[in-house]
Amino acid sequence: MAEGDGVADQEIRVRLDRTAGDRDVEALRQWLEREEPLAERLRRGELQIELRDRRNEDPGTPMGFGTEVVVVLIGGAASAAFKELMVAVRLAVVAWQENRRSVEAGDPPEAQVGGAADDG
């Protein structure tokens, strides 16, 4: 089967709580882009990290919870690879929260990390 034929990309969505501002969302995206092994997969073209505005999907979404960071695994890799990526993203989000706590006043936003099929 040729690359991309009938193989859907898989997504991991990172949603910050309503205390997050645009600066937090952008800082998290940049952190994920630099975090290994995500950075290596980005260099190899195996994944993309993008921001998506959810306010159009869910009109009742409060400010700060309207943008999510989406990590897209290109070409629908095997289940094991996706699970490994999910763990890496979760660890990277925790590392970002710890870093933010050490360099900025106040607690960092809470984060939800889940697959695209997760609606919570």
Results as ranks from 00 to 15, higher is better:
residue 12 I to L: 15
residue 112 Q to H: 10
residue 57 E to A: 11
residue 75 G to L: 03
residue 110 E to I: 08
residue 59 P to F: 02
residue 69 V to P: 06
residue 91 L to P: 03
residue 25 V to W: 03
residue 109 P to L: 00
residue 67 T to E: 08
residue 45 G to Y: 08
residue 5 D to T: 09
residue 91 L to F: 06
residue 9 D to H: 14
residue 28 L to M: 09
residue 118 D to W: 10
residue 110 E to Y: 08
residue 109 P to G: 00
residue 102 S to T: 15
residue 102 S to I: 13
residue 27 A to E: 12
residue 105 A to Q: 13
residue 69 V to R: 10
residue 73 L to R: 15
residue 84 E to R: 10
residue 9 D to T: 08
residue 118 D to F: 12
residue 76 G to H: 08
residue 71 V to I: 06
residue 33 E to C: 13
residue 96 W to S: 08
residue 86 M to G: 04
residue 81 A to F: 02
residue 98 E to M: 09
residue 20 A to P: 15
residue 34 R to S: 12
residue 109 P to R: 00
residue 99 N to M: 07
residue 96 W to R: 11
residue 94 V to W: 08
residue 49 I to M: 03
residue 47 L to F: 02
residue 44 R to T: 06
residue 49 I to Q: 02
residue 28 L to I: 10
residue 33 E to V: 06
residue 89 V to K: 09
residue 32 L to T: 07
residue 41 R to S: 04
residue 35 E to W: 10
residue 30 Q to P: 04
residue 95 A to Q: 11
residue 53 D to S: 05
residue 72 V to Q: 06
residue 48 Q to L: 12
residue 109 P to H: 01
residue 79 S to I: 05
residue 108 P to T: 01
residue 71 V to D: 00
residue 7 V to M: 07
residue 27 A to Y: 05
residue 3 E to I: 13
residue 59 P to Y: 03
residue 105 A to L: 13
residue 20 A to T: 05
residue 48 Q to P: 00
residue 88 A to L: 08
residue 38 L to H: 05
residue 113 V to W: 02
residue 109 P to Y: 00
residue 11 E to T: 13
residue 99 N to Y: 11
residue 116 A to W: 12
residue 93 V to G: 04
residue 99 N to T: 07
residue 11 E to Y: 14
residue 41 R to Y: 00
residue 63 M to R: 12
residue 28 L to P: 15
residue 33 E to H: 08
residue 58 D to I: 13
residue 48 Q to G: 01
residue 22 D to A: 10
residue 74 I to H: 04
residue 51 L to Y: 01
residue 78 A to E: 14
residue 2 A to Y: 12
residue 20 A to E: 05
residue 112 Q to I: 13
residue 31 W to N: 09
residue 23 R to N: 00
residue 11 E to K: 13
residue 73 L to N: 09
residue 23 R to V: 08
residue 49 I to R: 03
residue 69 V to C: 12
residue 118 D to T: 13
residue 4 G to E: 08
residue 89 V to Y: 07
residue 81 A to Y: 01
residue 105 A to N: 07
residue 103 V to E: 06
residue 86 M to I: 03
residue 10 Q to D: 05
residue 24 D to M: 02
residue 14 V to T: 04
residue 3 E to D: 14
residue 63 M to C: 03
residue 36 E to C: 00
residue 37 P to I: 15
residue 8 A to Q: 12
residue 28 L to V: 14
residue 117 A to H: 14
residue 66 G to F: 01
residue 77 A to D: 11
residue 117 A to P: 05
residue 17 D to N: 14
residue 31 W to M: 02
residue 82 F to Y: 07
residue 93 V to A: 01
residue 32 L to A: 03
residue 91 L to N: 11
residue 39 A to H: 13
residue 21 G to E: 10
residue 86 M to L: 15
residue 15 R to S: 14
residue 49 I to V: 12
residue 14 V to R: 04
residue 80 A to C: 01
residue 82 F to N: 02
residue 66 G to D: 13
residue 73 L to Y: 06
residue 106 G to K: 08
residue 114 G to I: 14
residue 59 P to G: 05
residue 114 G to V: 14
residue 51 L to I: 10
residue 18 R to T: 11
residue 92 A to C: 09
residue 30 Q to L: 14
residue 108 P to L: 00
residue 38 L to E: 03
residue 29 R to I: 02
residue 102 S to R: 15
